[in-house]
Design a protein around this nucleic acid. Structure first.
Lengths: 351, 351
DNA sequence: ATTAGCACTCACCTTGCAAGAGTGCTAACA
DNA sequence: TGTTAGCACTCTTGCAAGGTGAGTGCTAAT
């Protein structure tokens, strides 16, 4: 059996109506709402075929039809009408993002907020991953007796500061010597490398300063290992409450399951990057998802880039019965927009 | 009518049984489970009295009794048995907190996690408020052509850094002069004051550097105004999902309401500080709460201190039918513990 | 190939009824 | 006078029966 044009039209009608109403769609409804020029009986015949093809299913004998995951997939791949954003909507997205460009954290959060508001779904935003970075420069500044401010510059441009214990007997000159040693030796090395080679050299210069040195190295080490804080990859969620408005989540147990999963960041990351290599838009529908817990959900995600390098992702999560065309358009536009804005901002810089 | 001892025992039995089972408590149940040495009929008489006093109520004529908000209040104030934490529990709390002492953010988050785990309720932790702080010291360090790292030290000890645009024609010497001017003039002043008096002076020294100066002042200003980020007071929630396990929230609409409120940080702050002046433990039961939305919830909160100064709060939120004695004990111990640990850490320092 | 018609199925709602839990009242008892 | 046993009453809960309506599949006519 093949999909002819009429079957396509009927499937499309079923999906669209079901997306809109969340109720199983009957043959009569289709023949009334959509102008196909055929009677309910004909549609019934076609629906039997569609069911045989696995594209739609019946909750029970006397109910209408509901799209299967496969049906949604066919709809997404072949039938969906593209949605275009109005210039106004585009402007809002761009302006709001640009407004917050100074603070990366804010961009992330706002992107999520925006996406979830527009789609009425839950948004997922993967924070840009700090790439492997190496130390470039160290400065010490006076703080209070026995302590100094250590300012570090990494080769990706980030600047951090922390307080180190230097003991009361360290003179500014000694500190300067230490900084010089670091700066001479470290260009481009990672913390681990530092520790091995550098220790002897510095010990010979400042034999008494062992405690202080350990402090400095400790801080450096912590700075480079991926921690809970800034450096770790993390998915930010927005509009999680929107899920509660979906009729498929009127059951409290489902909500509990879903929200529990929301707290497992690792799973969310897998969700956002079903295949790491795939460029562009990614759509995972229902049971296509490896995790059973999401078998009633679909995820649409896309990556954004700076200077051609993949940086993070934006996605939405909703029930399988979601407005795919709108969601896809938003996610697509959002990532393209982010890519453009960020690439503009960091033009030519290595990230 | 007065509360005699038997009435108290019966009320206590009703509250305790209702807390445990979430089912209206009948006279027969009480006479069986609790050894009062009287028959159900007698208990019924007393219950009628308790109802007249407004301490318990009946969902419907043929159901058992349920404590009213007033009943819980009486229970909390007069009847409750104190719970003591085992040494083991105390140790866990202390160790886990101390382990994370380096990162304030982590202490907050872990405190919340711990509290919600132990109580099976939702925890609220108010992050320490950065007190009004003034600038103490500024340093400039080289970054890349046209840009410099500005390191600021505030008088509460915090150190921040940011990148400023200095234009390509600013020499290190000029930067040093600028830093000197700032450091001479600013001791203890806030950003706004700076702007007014300082400008002319600096303009006369570095007349060409207007753009750069504006950049520096802009950053300073933003640094001092309470922002979305670090400086703003914020309540952190833990174990919000625990609420879903409570039978009173099996209705999805209630969940939606509650969770919406969770996103309004300002309301949560009010919740944690019902009266700003009150020292020690605070218990708000059901409709005692000014916000209608929480009329089925109780909040227990307490503040913690550093060197006698109020810093933040810890609280739990649950249905009115919650285990008050346990919750109170935990919150109390947690804040006392935090106060001790933090005061120890910051001994003598001004916070 | 399409359609009208019809019998059939099944979820859903309403209604009625029985069971059970709990109360309030009354009268008897210590 | 306080306590208790007994009883009638109330109200929820659960279950079964029956009616309704939406929707289907099949068949026969167009």
């Amino acid at each position: 059996m093949q999909m002819d044009e009429r079957k396509q039209k009927i499937l499309k009608a079923i999906v669209q109506d079901y997306i809109a109403t969340a109720e199983p769609v009957g043959s009569r409804t289709i023949s009334k709402k959509f102008e196909l020029g055929v009677s309910p009986a004909t549609i019934r015949n076609e629906m039997a075929d569609l069911e045989e093809l696995g594209l739609i299913e019946q909750p029970h004998t006397s109910a209408g039809r509901v799209p299967s995951d496969l049906g949604y997939r066919y709809y997404v791949d072949c039938l969906m009408d593209p949605v275009v954003l109005s210039e106004k909507e585009k402007k809002i997205i761009n302006q709001e993002v640009v407004k917050r460009l100074d603070e990366l954290q804010e961009v992330i959060e706002y992107t999520g907020k925006l996406v979830s508001q527009v789609t009425n779904l839950t948004s997922l935003v993967l924070k840009p991953k700090n790439r492997e970075s190496a130390l470039k420069k160290i400065y010490f500044l006076p703080y209070e007796t026995g302590k100094a401010i250590m300012v570090t510059v990494k080769d990706n441009g980030t600047v951090d500061n922390s307080i180190v214990d230097i003991g009361e007997d360290t003179s500014p000159e000694e500190l300067q010597i230490l900084a010089n040693i670091f700066n001479d030796r470290l260009s481009g090395s990672k913390a681990q490398d530092l520790k091995k080679g550098l220790l002897n050299e510095i010990y010979s210069e400042l034999s008494k300063k062992r405690r202080m040195l350990d402090g400095v190295l400790g801080i450096l080490e912590r700075m480079f290992e991926p921690k809970d804080g800034e450096n770790k990859e993390r998915v930010y969620l927005g509009g999680t409450l929107n899920m509660l408005n979906q009729p498929e989540f009127k059951d409290i147990d489902k909500v509990k399951n879903l929200f529990s999963l929301f707290e497992e960041n690792r799973k969310l990351q897998e969700l956002l990057n079903p295949g790491d290599d795939i460029q562009g838009l990614n759509i995972t529908i229902g049971s296509e998802n490896p995790d059973l817990a999401f078998k009633e959900c679909s995820i649409i995600s896309a990556t954004y880039h700076i200077n051609g390098k993949q940086i993070g992702s934006v996605g939405v999560l909703g029930p399988t019965r979601m407005d795919y065309s709108k969601a896809i358009t938003i996610v697509d536009y959002m990532t393209k927009s982010l890519t453009e804005i960020l690439t503009n901002k960091y033009r030519g810089q290595q990230i």
